[in-house]
Write a protein that binds this DNA or RNA. Structure first.
Length: 471
RNA sequence: GGCCACGUGGCGGAGUGGUUACGCAGCGGAUUGCAAAUCCGUGUACUCCGGUUCAAUUCCGGACGUGGCCUCCA
């Protein structure tokens, strides 16, 4: 362990916080459920992306940047995708229509997510590139008598697994009590779920020993995690809502196919999100996509920087519910600006280490909020010019996925317009001549261009001016 | 009906069996030609009802409230 930081993570499987020990410190392996690419990702989708990016960064720091494998899948086979393809491209052949939908949505997702300050996962496999692996897994399950063929569907037999339901803490009787499971005559147990289903002519399908069809929802993650991470790996993450049935069924498939006791050692789940105190839904009209926030005034009347969204998301512990609101975004924005102001002028290099106290807080089940308190303290020291606080703050911000000037200068390709420097020089000359009227005029002109000027005195006591973009 | 979270001061949000969380906003002060930025100081809290305890916001039980899952929704 490079930094000697002991990690402790909350494990849904045991409902406790546990010391984390990787199976192989030279290859720490994490799988996170990624998007189904049929529509813009909403801000709820952004939460696991951001949370597990933070964990990825922490793991890379602790075990080494090249010793962590992070897999986030792209689900590009799904009935919602089919429906969208038929709706949007009714005149194209189905496969072509589907390809259009998934390619467009995937690239949109990747650019949205990049704006949130996230690193790219090591591998981002697509379901459609892993059909053969899924079929092999299903064949194994049938061979081991954990799956059966009925009515043209291959189903997983939950009764064949003694400890099915371990992750979600529910037993099969509980599920039946709800009486909301469709009783299908062809299922041996109503809780049995589909591994492979037949496709009609107008549905995408692949040839298989069980006829032309397509995979069930859960099997892709079992197949892809095995392919890239092995039969047993360290961490599996996703949203709270995936615990049941998705993750429960992934576990059932993988363990039964491989005859293993464990699929992933640690299961981590982020909490849900509301918008302005209400459940996010299209019918309530408060459905907000990442892209809306980055590009439009859908929330708060103007677009928000991706790093502001990142901070707004991390301000609350990942397992707690979040109420996503304009007020929260404003608070995140002013906090990030405070940090960037305090870090300004820092000279950073590759050797700069993130702050130890920040790392310590993050190592405690990703307690970002306590880490941010530590960051506030460093920022305060930086503002007082204490020691290496400024460098430390800058390095820590970058480690956490924030840039050093995104809120102080303009977004992309920003270069300081020469007239700003000239105007500042003119104004300083005016000030030294005690021509305050002229100085104020210059400041007002720049303010109208969105540039805020701030006077201060340098170490020699001479008057200086700095500037930043104001909103 | 079953299972699972959560309920902290104006807001955000940690944490703890007894001692200031912290941040934002507010207020007071310093600094400043003015302003901004920055620094210093400062008030308000733990949903309700029982129980355990010398002591509970923190443990236990219950109530109420909010949200999630049991419907291929992160």
């Amino acid at each position: 362990m490079i930094s000697g930081t002991p990690l402790s993570l909350y494990n849904t499987l045991t409902r406790t916080k546990e010391a984390f020990t990787p199976l192989d410190p030279d290859n720490v392996r994490m799988y996170v459920c990624g998007p189904t690419v049929y529509d813009f990702a909403h801000i709820g989708n952004a939460r696991p992306v951001i949370v597990f990016d933070l964990l990825f960064r922490l793991l890379r720091h602790v075990y080494g940047a090249d010793k962590v494998t992070y897999v986030r899948n792209i689900t590009d086979v799904d009935d919602k995708i089919n429906a969208r393809a038929l709706r949007d491209f009714p005149d194209l052949p189905l496969n072509e229509a589907i390809r259009r939908v998934t390619e467009k949505t995937e690239s949109q997702f990747l650019s949205d997510v990049a704006a949130l300050g996230t690193l790219e996962p090591t591998v981002q496999p697509r379901a459609t590139d892993n059909i053969a692996e899924m079929q092999a897994l299903i064949a194994d399950l049938i061979a081991r008598e954990h799956a059966y063929n009925a009515n043209g569907e291959v189903l997983f037999a939950v009764d064949s697994m003694a400890d099915y339901g371990q992750l979600s803490g529910r037993n099969l009787e509980d599920n039946l009590a709800g009486a909301r499971i469709a009783i299908d005559a062809h299922k041996k147990n109503p809780a049995d779920f589909v591994l492979w289903k037949q496709s009609a002519e107008n549905e995408p399908g692949w040839d298989s020993p069980w006829g032309r069809g397509r995979p069930g929802w859960h099997i892709e993650c079992s197949a892809m995690s095995e392919r890239y991470l092995g039969q047993t790996f360290d961490i599996h993450g996703g949203g709270l809502d995936l615990i049941f049935p998705h993750h429960e069924n992934e576990i059932a498939q993988s363990r039964c196919a491989h005859g293993t006791e464990v699929m992933a050692k640690v299961w981590m789940h982020n909490g849900f999100l509301q918008v302005e105190g209400q459940k996010m839904s299209k019918s309530l009209g408060n459905f907000v996509t990442i892209n809306d926030l980055l590009q439009t005034g859908a929330m708060g009347g103007h677009a928000w920087h991706g790093e502001v969204l990142r901070l707004a998301m991390l301000m609350t512990h990942y397992r707690e519910p979040i109420d996503f609101s304009v007020k929260r975004l404003e608070e995140a924005e002013s906090k990030l600006r405070d940090w960037q102001r305090a870090a300004r002028g820092a000279e950073t290099g590759e050797a700069d280490e993130p702050d130890a106290s920040v790392l310590r807080e993050l190592a405690d089940d990703l307690n970002f909020h306590r880490a941010s308190v530590a960051l506030d303290l460093i920022a305060k020291k930086a503002n007082r010019d204490e020691g290496h606080a400024r460098q430390c703050l800058a390095a820590t911000l970058q480690f956490l996925g924030f840039s050093l000037d995104s809120l102080l200068t303009s977004d992309e390709g920003w270069e300081e317009p020469p007239h700003i420097a000239a105007a500042i020089a003119d104004r300083l000359a005016a000030l030294n001549a005690k021509d305050f009227a002229k100085a104020d005029t210059i400041r007002k002109d720049l303010a109208e261009q969105g540039i805020a000027l701030m006077d201060y005195k340098d170490e020699a006591g001479a008057r200086q001016t700095k500037w930043e973009i104001k909103r």
